[in-house]
Nucleic acid binder design. Sequence first.
DNA 1: CGCTTGTTTGACCTTCGTCAAATTGTGTGG
DNA 2: CCACACAATTTGACGAAGGTCAAACAAGCG
Lengths: 244, 244
Amino acid sequence: MYLRASEVGDSSVADIDRSLVRSLPLFANMADVELERMLARAAMRRIPPGEAVFEQGQKATQFFLLLHGRLKVTQVTAEGQQIIVRVVHPGDLFGFAQALQRDDYPGTPIAAAESVVICWPNEVWASIVEQNPNLAVNAMRTIGQRLQEAHTRIREMSTEEVERRVAHAVLRLMDQAGRRDADGDGVHIDFPLTRQDVAEMTGTTLHTVSRLFSAWESQGIVKGGRQKLLIRDRARLEALAEGQ
Amino acid sequence: MYLRASEVGDSSVADIDRSLVRSLPLFANMADVELERMLARAAMRRIPPGEAVFEQGQKATQFFLLLHGRLKVTQVTAEGQQIIVRVVHPGDLFGFAQALQRDDYPGTPIAAAESVVICWPNEVWASIVEQNPNLAVNAMRTIGQRLQEAHTRIREMSTEEVERRVAHAVLRLMDQAGRRDADGDGVHIDFPLTRQDVAEMTGTTLHTVSRLFSAWESQGIVKGGRQKLLIRDRARLEALAEGQ
DNA sequence: CGCTTGTTTGACCTTCGTCAAATTGTGTGG
DNA sequence: CCACACAATTTGACGAAGGTCAAACAAGCG
């Protein structure tokens, strides 16, 4: 948020915050020299809220790393229905298309808040992986974890009713984007999140999510607001997620 | 099916069918020497129908490749509900736990039909990947594709009604395990498949699947049987999958 | 201050899951 | 080779979870 780059769209390598990048697990085992070499081929981009980094179906020419902010990756069906495939958090790689053996991007990452990404041309990937197998292993673990998450979600959608699914989704958001509230009265989600978003993450409608949040609020479990959510009683939310 | 190993549980490396392994995309770019070196550390196992290669939650000590047969990978929820995460086809890697950064297996692969697998101890993975980055890239692509499939499934479960989901699942099975029928009257699924299986793949109940198959059968789209399914009219099934 | 975007709530109705019971294949042991 | 037992399948009746439709109501933003 406090980046020099925030005034411009694209920006030079020199502006990239080294200490931030260095702290990412993805680069944990990479030598400084190699990291510099990698950053030398990167570009930085600022994404204002509501804008897409790229569009679903677009030819994949680059891959990305989120430095600051938060992205919602959406997919749109042929009928125009939208779902949120996942949320990209700072430090996550995304737009990995060529590693997934496809030449177009499968989804659209939209900035939920002001965001900053680094991007590399696709060709860089192969050469980097060859020189640094460690990175490949790390990247594979990342994808593996995502696969895990996807399976968890499939299992939830197959076997759980809406209330439990929504509870799970909120708990996950809490872990990934929770922030101790200023008033000390709980944990709030650190980026603008609508009921519609939650619905698209759990396979339900914004109406149902709204009804659930209202019910929860009357029990003191959460507190809602426009694009805001504050969790006050994690324990009870966990109970709901486990089915009471 | 015509393996010497079919009489015994475990078997020596010498028995592994080289031409079969060689033809797998996973080893496409691997030199013969390296392939031999890799197979030298492998073991072969025969799995009778209904038996598990390993159990969900078990400590992951090996990774596997399916040579013959068909496996249903199941997950069981805390409440005891089961879902089928995916079907393993000949040539697929599975039981990849350590690449996914976990030390236990996330699911249970059960042989739907008589099956033969090769297995390696986990330690082998790292050394092989180091010597042969190509394999790592291939493996990553495989995982990437699985992630794609998982997202597709999530999207379907979020936005489509049961009939479309089941139609999609059947089409997928057709592509992955379809076999021109002996009577030439369509394509049948090449392994024993129950209504319950289809239900667990689509997040519905065996009752609903049975009702759907009955309806489809009366329209001449499919023909059912005990653990059997014959697709006679792919075009109409595709129409159903697209929502008419 | 209006306008847009997000949220809340109510009424209604459809899709599917649940419960129950009958039926049909298959393989096995006598 | 038949009969029995078990597993898979089929079908019907019923009800409830949750989606759809509709309308009113905030909360920011320019």
